[in-house]
Amino acid sequence: MPQIKPTRSELIKLQRKIKLSKTGYNILKKKRDGLVMNLFGMVKDAKEAQETLEESYEVANRYLGMTIAFEGEINVASCALIKKGTPQFQLESKNIMGVQVPKISELSFKKGINDRGYSILSTSSKIDETVEEYEKVLEYVAKAVEAESTLKKVLNEIEVTKRRVNALESKIIPKLESQKKFIDFRLEELERENKFRLKMIKDKKSKKSS
């Protein structure tokens, strides 16, 4: 710590810094705790989304299996030739305790039977229902993606915050405090020196005068 000048103004500066760090530390700690608290809910959400996705995928596959069994693979493949457009969705963001997380809105996977491209006359409701199930799957995929990426971002944020808190707690604040101690010590020493010197001068003066 040689570069620190043990001056009073430094000390004041340092004191201010320490105070700031401590407040920051407290706030970050609270944020961390808050995020962790939120995390439990999110994990549950993500897990649920995953499960519904899996479930709906299973259901859809079953529907597909049945449709293929009843209508023939060739008929289904023929209907599948019309893949009209890619599904559209709107991506927005949401703020959770200062974390920007994605939010998928305006899910437009679901189509009416007339908008799917095939004619009603030449198909059956088995196709409809299978398509509907797969549309549901798509929807759940979007939801799962949303939940999962939120989870990821929040986890990331918690990690960062935790690191910061740790840094403040175990590095920055102790360092500042030791600097403050050092300055305190130096200043005290200086004062003592001054006192001693003053005493010496006083003694000399009184000797001279007496």
């Binding site: 060739i74 493949a77 209907c79 030739l81 019309i82 491209g117 095939y118």
Partner: peptide, 15 residues
């Protein structure tokens, strides 16, 4: 259907 959505010839022939 295949032509409408520009599927390949193999894809169409399969159906």
């Amino acid at each position: 259907r295949g032509k409408y959505s520009k599927a390949t010839a193999e894809e169409i022939e399969r159906t």
